[in-house]
Simulated scan of single mutants.
Amino acid sequence: MSGEQHVTLARGHRTPFWVLLTTFLVVSSGGAWLVALPLWTSSAGLASPVAPLLLPAIMYTPAAAVFVVASVRRQRPGATARELGMWPLRPVKRVLGLTIIAVAGAPLLIAIGVFIAAGFGWVRLDLEHLSGFRETLRAAAGRAADAAPLQLIAIVQLVSIPIGALFNGLLTFGEEVGWRGWLLPRLRSRIGTWPSLVVSGAIWGLWHSPLILLGYNFEQPNVFGVFLMVVGSVSVGILFGWLRLRSGSVWPPVFAHGALNASANLVVLFSSAGDRVDPVLAGPLGAGTWTAAAIVITALVIVGQFAPARLEPFPSSSSRTSGSALRAQQDQVDD
């Protein structure tokens, strides 16, 4: 077989792993471009009235890719759910604990990134008067915003982030079941933990290209914008990947992703009026957040959270499984 990893299908056919990987990438990325096509053909771009419908649909193209790959393999739904980390939820305490950490940690990461950006002079903050937030409310509601209890609204915004994470999880599941549910563990069993974290994060970033090239997120509709998205996705993706491998479940990264999206406007909440926030430097996936993520990742490495014994091997439950044994077990799961 020349050492190549293969997947044994129910009827005896064998499909190379690279075929499954290529299928996954074509369906997920090609699907994203296809769904985004109306935005490209419209002169309005991201301002198109159909954008609010298309953006959530794009988030489910990785899930569609998982479905196609599972269909190619003719795999039973129960086996697919176990592989993807959807079920069973055990150890329950670890899965639940890491989910809580994910929901609380994602907005904290964004907030730390905002303060790092402020420390470098990339954004000016007004924590006392929240003048930037007032300016945003005024733009949306006119002079009526001046009478609004600003501090109370800000507190409500912060408290609602966990609720937003739960609702956003309905959408981010479409992405995470692909990136951290299917792609990361399969790459890990073949190229190792750190390469798979970086590669899966980079693929996640490139997958955003149809929107980034329209100016989404960084207001950089060019290759530089795509590069920024790749860097941001790798930095955050390593943390999401750690949640997946530490818990053995896809749900902590699902809700971490949901909380991250719910926290995207924290910089607006803290910023000073009249100060344009550069999303490249102080945005939710800007340089401030990259720095914050690097600090957290370094801390996790120092305390041994990326040690093999701490991570859930895939697909075996034994933490001492060698790389070659993992690959052999992967083929058994694919049988």
Rank of each mutant, 00 (worst) to 15 (best):
S249P: 02
V250M: 06
V250W: 05
V250Y: 05
W251Y: 11
W251D: 03
W251A: 03
P252G: 12
P253M: 01
P253K: 05
P253F: 01
V254G: 08
V254H: 10
F255Q: 01
A256M: 14
A256T: 09
H257Y: 05
A259V: 06
L260F: 14
L260R: 12
N261T: 03
N261C: 08
A264W: 04
A264T: 08
A264M: 08
N265Y: 12
L266H: 07
L266V: 05
L266G: 01
L266M: 01
V267L: 00
V267G: 12
V268P: 04
S271E: 04
S271K: 10
A273S: 14
A273K: 07
A273Y: 04
G274A: 08
D275F: 07
V277M: 04
V277A: 02
V277S: 01
V277C: 01
D278P: 12
D278T: 09
D278W: 11
P279Y: 04
P279A: 09
V280M: 02
V280N: 01
L281A: 12
L281W: 14
P284A: 06
P284N: 09
L285T: 15
L285Q: 14
G286L: 07
A287C: 13
G288I: 09
W290A: 02
W290Q: 06
T291K: 09
T291L: 15
A292T: 02
A292R: 03
A292Y: 03
A293Y: 11
I295A: 15
V296T: 10
I297N: 02
I297H: 05
I297L: 04
T298C: 10
T298N: 04
T298D: 05
L300Q: 01
V301C: 08
I302F: 00
G304W: 00
G304V: 06
Q305M: 13
Q305E: 14
F306I: 01
A307G: 08
A307R: 13
A309C: 07
A309V: 12
A309W: 09
R310A: 09
R310L: 00
R310P: 06
R310K: 08
L311F: 06
L311E: 08
L311I: 03
L311V: 05
L311P: 02
P313H: 07
P313M: 02
P313C: 03
F314N: 03
S316A: 05
S317I: 15
S317P: 15
S317C: 12
S318D: 15
S318Y: 10
R320N: 08
R320D: 13
R320C: 02
T321E: 09
T321K: 00
S322G: 15
S322C: 04
